[in-house]
Design a binder for these strands. Structure first.
Lengths: 343, 343
DNA sequence: ACTGGCACTCAGATTGTTCGAGTGCCAGTT
DNA sequence: AACTGGCACTCGAACAATCTGAGTGCCAGT
């Protein structure tokens, strides 16, 4: 088992290393922290920590550096979170106030988070699953295309075009179809709406002439497809420039940039990471190996009461975990308030 | 004036430097290119080129490297464009085929361009100015908010929420308003539609009870605002990882990443760059100084017949201009076809 | 107008040397 | 048993000295 003081030493090492970006040695620890013991004693503790693979030396004889495992233990034993600085608070406050459409809110939020943490910030768009369909529209579009527009309770507008089979849909035909679908769908949440559409499909011949079943089916399938592909799988990213801070992602920068651009990766990662709603989750170094992000740490949480959407930051192993956790939590809380109040 | 052969030497230097990423010397030129003359002669030509500041040496005695001005002349005198490789052709062909909504098309196009060029690709969303309004909708949204949805001829859906003054709009009231606005707007192009709305505003008291003028005005202003803020000012970016190719953007990487993220910058740059419709434009090195992109070159063109929208690539000074120009042109042409055919 | 030859320059690689922060270990102290 | 001081040792970083070779400018000769 790890002694009380050894753990304190670990914390000191992580702290100093994050602050100074240099391997930290026994001597500098006694200087910078008021342990009541000598350097030699610290060295012994450090030897223990090294046995447990919590810290490592870059080469024989030079200060220690936390390992992934060390960071992990550090985060897990992180008790007191530093309160946010005044600057951070006012930044969030000032950011409050005007909000207009969802895209705007997302863009600003992600930028805010990135500035607060000086890392890459990632915000997933709110999930739509639990939100009601407010309006549906079918608009004829050129030859044989129909545009389905879905307006959701939280102000999100979904669009999708469906290609129709040969026989064209008249304006009037579209009107009846729209009406019919609307009654089955409006006011329902996404899942219920989809079930409603499914019923329409099964009873299609009852409400439409047999000649047009094919037409109706293709429209319905488009609507259903659109309901299912609820676009909560969009994300906003900001602060990529922070990755270039010298010495951070030396070799793996391209990989990280690719991962960020490849939104699917991020979505999977976030999805897997944030399992328990409401909790802050961290994934450190090689824990992200599967996503090619072994050199990065991710701090994330979910931000809708209902939980399906995520936000977080991505940064180097050597990051200010305490501060970033705090910032992620604050922004999530703030976004919760903004989204619920506002709609 | 510059001699025929000197120009050829410049082309050789640019070509070799782009290919090898090493300053190129007189000797290596005679080896790699079939000039019928000796190294010493080449040296004389190079001295001339250097007098004209078209090439420079990194230090006394070591090969020459093109200057910004050299690249510029190179691009301007680029006559024969290498035909696209077979691989590139098939990539574009394969990419053809399924297209669904605009977001998808943009995402795929930008990725395609990035892969073809191995640079950062930028595609501005199609401009909406010249496109007809196909449908307009007003949807009551919570307490005192109204969501305006605008569907345009090219399949783009615009959304915007308007906050109403105290007196709420009934569902029925919205219906009449919608109808009225629709007749003024549907079928018009954006500009005409905006004029239509302006007329409605000036004659508002005629078609609405005086009690509701305030209400009507706020809705109309929202619609107008939305028409004006035609969102052609969105852009899609891909291939940021290409910036990390070793040795390319050594110091300026953060700046470049910031510029890419700051879409406003890119939009301005593109806007200024592509003046003549249909033409390929290039901006090299310090020509981009105003945007903090002195280390980058941009190759861009416009891609809608009507010209307001742009696409292009951004890369290091030392890039394959001929190939990239070719790729940009091909993708623009392709996108033209796709967008016009399809809608 | 072009060429061959020659002296000169200079970045980059290679090697050697020194310096010092940091370590492990052990005998001694509390 | 826990801590401390001391000591020999290690090894990267920093610096200096040296060497190498690609490349140049220039000039006399074809």
């Amino acid at each position: 088992m790890i002694s009380e003081r050894s753990l304190a030493v670990l914390h000191a090492i992580v702290g100093d290393y994050v602050a100074l970006n240099e391997p930290v040695g026994s001597k500098s620890i006694v200087e910078r922290h008021a342990f009541g013991v000598s350097a030699a004693t610290i060295r012994n503790d450090m030897a223990l920590l090294e046995d447990d693979e919590l810290i490592a030396q870059t080469h024989t004889s030079s200060g220690r550096v936390p390992t992934d495992k060390g960071y992990r233990l550090y985060v897990d034993t992180l008790a007191k979170l530093r309160p946010m600085t005044q600057a951070q608070r006012t930044a969030i406050e000032r950011f409050l106030g005007e909000s207009s459409d969802l895209d705007d809110v997302m863009a600003r939020t992600v930028r805010l988070l990135s500035q607060l943490t000086n890392q890459v910030a990632v915000v997933q768009y709110p999930s739509l699953r639990s939100v009601a369909v407010r309006h549906i529209d079918l608009v004829a579009l050129g030859e044989n295309r129909v545009l389905c527009v879905l307006i959701l309770g939280n102000g999100v507008v979904e669009q999708h075009t469906a290609t129709l089979p040969a026989n064209r849909a008249s304006e009037q035909w579209l009107n009846t179809a729209r009406e019919r679908i609307a009654t089955a769908v409006v006011g329902q949440d996404i899942d219920a709406a989809d079930r409603g559409v499914a019923e329409l499909v099964s009873s299609v011949s009852e409400w439409i002439g047999p000649a047009d079943t094919e037409l109706a089916l293709s429209v319905l399938s488009a609507v259903s497809q659109q309901l299912q592909a609820n676009r909560s799988d969009r994300i906003a990213v900001a602060g990529a420039a922070n990755l270039t801070r010298p010495g951070e992602f030396a070799g793996s920068l391209p990989t990280v940039l690719e991962a960020i651009e490849e939104q699917v990766t991020l979505l999977r990662l976030f999805g897997e990471l944030v399992q328990d709603e409401r909790e802050i989750a961290a994934s450190i170094g090689r824990e992200n190996e599967a996503y090619g992000l072994s050199d990065a740490s991710i701090i994330a949480t979910s931000y809708e009461q209902l939980g399906a959407s995520r936000l977080g930051v991505l940064g180097p192993l050597r990051m200010d975990y305490a501060g970033n956790i705090q910032a992620v939590r604050a922004v999530a809380r703030y976004l919760n308030r903004l989204l619920s109040e506002d709609r």
